[in-house]
Design a protein around this nucleic acid. Sequence first.
RNA 1: GCGGGUAUGGCGGAAUUGGCAGACGCGCUAGAUUCAGGUUCUAGUGGGGGCAACUUCGUGGAGGUUCAAGUCCUCUUACCCGCACCA
Length: 799
Amino acid sequence: MKYDFPNIEPKWQKRWEEAHVFEASSDHTKPKFYGLVEFPYPSGAGMHVGHIKAYSGLEVISRKRRMEGYNVLFPIGFDAYGLPTENYAIKTGIHPRQVTDKNIERFTSQLKRVGFSFDWTRVVDTTEEKYYKWTQYIFLKMFENGLVFRDTALVNYCPSCKVVLSNEDSQGGKCDICHSDIVQKSKDVWYLRITEYADKLLQGLEGVDYLPQVKQQQVNWIGKSTGAFVNFAVTGTDEKLRIYTTRPDTLYGVTFMVIAPEHPMLDKLSDRIANMDEIVAYREVCAKKTEFERTQLVKEKTGVRIEGICGINPVNGKEIPIYTADYVMMGYGTGAIMAVPAHDERDYEFAKKFGIDIIEVIKGGDIEKEAYTGDGEMVNSDFLNGIATKKEAIEKMLAYLGEQGIGEAGVQYKMKDWAFNRQRYWGEPIPIVHYPKCGMVPVPYEELPLRLPEIKEFAPGEGGESPLAKIDSYVNCSCPKCGGAAKRETDTMPQWAGSSWYFLRYIDPKNDQCLADMDEMKYWLPVDWYNGGMEHVTRHMIYSRFWHKFLYDIGEVPTSEPYAKRTAQGLILGPDGDKMSKSKGNVVDPNEVVDAYGADVLRVYILFMGDYASAAPWSESSVKGCKRFLDRVAELSSMVKEENNAKLESAFHKMLKKVSSDIEEMKFNTAIAAMMGLLNEIYDHGSLTRDQLLTFIKALCPFAPHLCEEMWEQLGGEGFCSLTAWPQYDEAKTIDETVELAVQVNGKVRGKVELPLNADRDTALAIAKAAPSVAAAIEGKTLVKEIVVPNKIINIVVR
RNA sequence: GCGGGUAUGGCGGAAUUGGCAGACGCGCUAGAUUCAGGUUCUAGUGGGGGCAACUUCGUGGAGGUUCAAGUCCUCUUACCCGCACCA
């Protein structure tokens, strides 16, 4: 029998909604479970099967938690600010608000069609005034606490989108949105001082249960290194050239110094530099290179000797040449390095090219051939000579630097401050007013939200300024401090702003007094389980942890970490095994699958495809296999007979044990396989009892809830299947009284024997040897060893 | 270059963590049902050999440890994902 999914599915979706089945309760006496999935960007393309996979994992877990008696918060919302909507507005002239509303409506109906058990009463939309008021509020709190600053800097700029991008949004030198090459442009940039939280972000990882790759990626992204700052005198000046090094132990091996082409010292000492023309020319060449070229394509070292000045090595007073070269970045450390060619590959390459001395200070390599970066005995290093380990040499040197006042231990991070403004319309307005006398003045809290004005032209200006800059009524305002005629900031926040705290708002989405009620937050936080894509690990995850830690420090939230546990789903690839993309034409539309097979089939298939965390290609015929499975489940109703069968009963308990534990480990594919296996056993047996069928339906309910509700109702079950108690298994019944053991002779299986559970060694061996095939294999041979692993295997070694 | 991961039938993938490799699904083969296509049902399905019971080989490759290796160790190859001149 095929079940009538086109009627069953809408019927139960409606009933769930009417009965408020999936709404989180305010009863704080019950144990809670807060399951969070990354809320979607409501794009014009509609839902993708990838969305379904991303939500299906916690969907099953949340449904199981409800059946286990938890008060479950499983919310959804929309991360609706962003460039695609804005670009669409620029192209068509349709206001982003209208586009966003339409897209949200479409996403909502598509999500509901799949039967996700979201709490639809708590939907948040980051572009709503009532929401972004609080995004602005958090920004102002950061401003108040010195975490916001403005600087003119070389920034990543996308000439095609005409927008400034953060490092996170321009990985690999390509624009994250349009994939054009990024150029460096000097701009006024708003920064959030995320580096202030680098250490806290790192330390916080110790107490959370994230997938190891997730932790690792965050650790690498933060990129903490320990070393030392050392000050080098510059000949003929009072200048100190400050460098950062992780290898202060090699200070006696320094033979030159290198500063970044953008280093301010070049301009400062320009009148002392003999070849300033050459240096300016070099700097211009470097500035033209994109970040991409500079870091990836050009492996050949380039640089220019700075004539007229030298550095003085503070440990031995030696004069050494200074170069400027673009292999040293202004954005890391101090933008200047001491170069030790004997023990650093880059410095070695540079020294070889420019004919600079190479002095060995650590034994163990052959510096004629290459730089030696390993450990070894110190030489040519005065008081360090003879020391055998890097650790000890560094300690000694650090102590010396301190005594002499020429340097000190220091820490550096790869992570940079977060460039936070965008010259765009469709984002949260930055609530700051500029007035020459008062500087940057925050918009008073009472005036929030600072609303986006209504405009008709959404394109940014040619110079890359925000479209808001053209709206005089918006720009001109009075200074909140002194009342003078001031100008409003016209940049908006990046897309990552609203998503940095949305999980707090779900807890109390309608609160107009604060982000969310403290008592509610104390009950619901932290998020118990957060699932999302690996692509957000170094952006959204780091940003939101930063905001949360800041909010914790100012007493606005009760926990120092937002997420207790983080997992990630793998991609769904196209049927051809490639990443799904419109241009390849291999995109699977979830709606068509629901039309053809039903939502339950879609849900079961997506979780059955393979390991949840791995990528797997779509297979239409495997979808049919899942349809067959559910059709066969529906057929069980006609197989109910009240005659018990101990073997089948035991199979049920084994299935429940497997399904219960597999769901917890996100091994949904094997959980479904276990149910399929049991189904086959039921068919072989020809019948099952009503209780057994009810048990089967309960276990399947988180995966295929519509079919299960329907069968539950037909069998006379009380209330909703989705709210009945999760079926418990009896451990004793999962254990068979006898076990079949393979008997090996010299490691090869020669027979199988049926043994009572936990049979003792002698009994087991006696029965094993009695088996004809085993007896034949050991006949006439000398017994060497007998291995009996209870209930697992018997191996008889003969010669 | 650094960090992380993966490799198992024709395909997606299992394997109680060192104990019968290939669960479950797809596909395929044969048969039944059907006017036919589809559906459904039954049986079979890693390779080689054999009518068969059976036998032999088999988890990217080469070694090793072990009574026993997909699983542990050493070396190696290919691919995927991060980061990337980070001093």
